[in-house]
Design a protein around this nucleic acid. Sequence first.
DNA 1: TTGCCTAGACGCAACGGCGCGTCTAGTCTG
DNA 2: CAGACTAGACGCGCCGTTGCGTCTAGGCAA
Lengths: 199, 199
Amino acid sequence: MSAASPQSRRPRSGNRRDEAARLAVLHAADDLLVEHGFGALTVEAIARRAGVAKQTIYRWWPSKVEILLDTLIEDSAKRLPVPALEPTAETVRGYLRDFARFLTDDPAGKVLLALVAQAQHDPGTADRLQERYLRPRRDQERDMLTRASAAGEITPALDPDTTLDAVVGPLVYRALTGSDVPPDLVDALAGNLLGPRRG
Amino acid sequence: MSAASPQSRRPRSGNRRDEAARLAVLHAADDLLVEHGFGALTVEAIARRAGVAKQTIYRWWPSKVEILLDTLIEDSAKRLPVPALEPTAETVRGYLRDFARFLTDDPAGKVLLALVAQAQHDPGTADRLQERYLRPRRDQERDMLTRASAAGEITPALDPDTTLDAVVGPLVYRALTGSDVPPDLVDALAGNLLGPRRG
DNA sequence: TTGCCTAGACGCAACGGCGCGTCTAGTCTG
DNA sequence: CAGACTAGACGCGCCGTTGCGTCTAGGCAA
């Protein structure tokens, strides 16, 4: 659906990068992953779907992993922002619930799971996923927790990183193993690990 | 190391399956995965390493995933048994600590992570992993928790499956993202989720 | 017992298919 | 002209399959 059709694409703009082609590639990769799984995600299939020459892909991306990282970063910045200013117990819980829905319902969630998976098969992917996505996001999440703690909104018993792993881990694990990730689960984990509100 | 050398292999035994060949394939797959990662794990490489013809592999296993499942099941039955009879709070905690070490230090732990990863890329793998490994093991673990609860050894606040996901999830998540999985983490999670001993 | 015969597991080698990443050639636009 | 684009061919490696010859255990008959 979101693949650009050839006629809707603006004419190329000379010797500058074609933004329409870039978006077409990103959307094609996303769509193919969701529709047919990572196994069917080949560079040639992306090129066909995007209506773009294979060489154009290799010109701008070293691998399909980097394409997926681009879509993941753009999409999760848009649709799963980390509450930054004066987070309350409720915004923290809300973020975690959103994260659970992101994992299971959002196409970008599938992209994240696929990249975590691919990281097991290829050390290069593991490094890039850490650098470009996991580490920066974790920094923001840690900051959120620290601010909420300082404001007395939450009172976690464990240090911030362990707390985050303890909540995020089960959500990701259930998503990876094909279980559902209901909001109740998030609330149960948050209740156990974030401590009483306004302790 | 564990690949059978040709001269050490016993002569084939007529029209019966060659057990030495079976073990050579299992060990070759295991070794190649640990040494070079899933990416380098091809059926042809396994055949070369095991000193076995490719057809012999295809005769007995429909895919390399099934080979890995065989090794995972045999190895974790041997090296990570689930405490079954009258589990105490300490045996439950011990099992979870063993599981953490299994994930990071045991070759079979790498096999499990690789299969969880592959399950994201291929629905068939997801089904087989569930059927042959995750479900049976979860059944045993649930039983362990239920018995320990009934005996008053542990007092989890959540239902058994959620409790297991809440402990196992973070361990797996950290292993997947390349973090270490220290015993302290297990103890912290267990302290939070298994409840006070002999409450 | 001796000797042949069959069943089935095995190794060797080659097949067509496909995705990889690279390369060449030609087109289009600022 | 420079630089991004399309189209398509290339060699490589692995896929899963096939044909064929070899080897051995076990059955059967003289």
